[in-house]
Design a protein around this nucleic acid. Structure first.
Lengths: 99, 99
DNA sequence: TCAATATATTGACATCCTTCGATGCAATGA
DNA sequence: TCATTGCATCGAAGGATGTCAATATATTGA
C-alpha cells in the first residue's frame, strides 16, 4: 500500500479538472503572446465574473501568471506548469514512460 | 482561442483529483498483483463504504477493473489508464515533451 | 437453510463548487 | 473631476462531492 501524501497533487489536479479551465490552459499554451481576460469572456459562454473565477483558480494554483497593462489584464502560462502536472502523474504511476 | 471540447478530459481528471483516489491508483500501479478491497479498507483512514465509493469512481471512469474471487473483490489498473491521463495533458499543452 | 464475512448500495448530512447579478476598484480619456 | 471601460470581489442559489451509519447483496462453510 502506497503511503505517500497526495494532497498537493490532488489539489493541483482539481484546479484543472474543469472543461473551461482546460480550455483556458490550452489557449494559453497555444498562444505565443499573453491572452487578455476579455478574449476569454468574448469566446466562452460564461459571464465575466465566472471567467474571472476560473482564472483565479488557475492563478492560485500557480499555473498562470498575470500582468496588468493599462485597463487590461493579460494571462500567461506559468513556467513549469505542464511539468508540475506531469510530475503528479509520474508520482502516481511511477517513473515516466515517454509521455 | 482553443475551441476543442475538454468535457471528457475534465471528467477523467476529476475522477482522480482526490488524495485517496491517487493513493489507490499509485498502489495499484506499484503492485504487481491485484489489490483486494480489504487491503484499502485496512490501510486507509476511511470507512468501508467510503473506500467502496472511491473505488467506484475510479471504476466508472474506466481507470480500474475488478474481479470477484470468492468473497473478495480484487482491483487492477485498467490497461491504458496512465496513457489516457497523459493524453489529456498532451491535448491541453500540445504534443508531448518527455513526460 | 443458516451464520459469517466481504463488498456494494442507500440515504442523509455537511461541505464545496459553479454560476451569476450586483457592486467595487483601477486605469484611461475628456 | 467625471464618465467609461476592464477586471475583481461579494453574496446567494443550486448542484455536486465526500463521508458515514444502516442496510442489502453475494459467497462460503457448516
Amino acid at each position: 500500500m502506497v503511503t505517500r501524501n497526495f494532497k498537493a497533487g490532488a489539489a493541483l489536479l482539481k484546479a484543472i479538472a474543469d472543461p473551461y479551465r482546460l480550455t483556458m490552459l490550452a489557449t494559453l499554451s497555444a498562444s505565443k503572446n499573453e491572452v487578455c481576460v476579455c478574449d476569454f469572456t468574448d469566446a466562452m459562454p460564461l459571464n465575466q465574473p465566472t471567467v474571472s473565477h476560473h482564472l483565479r483558480v488557475l492563478r492560485e494554483a500557480g499555473l498562470t501568471t498575470c500582468v496588468r497593462r493599462g485597463t487590461w489584464v493579460y494571462y500567461q502560462l506559468a513556467p513549469g506548469a505542464r511539468e508540475r502536472l506531469s510530475a503528479v502523474l509520474a508520482a502516481v504511476f511511477g517513473k515516466k514512460l515517454r509521455g
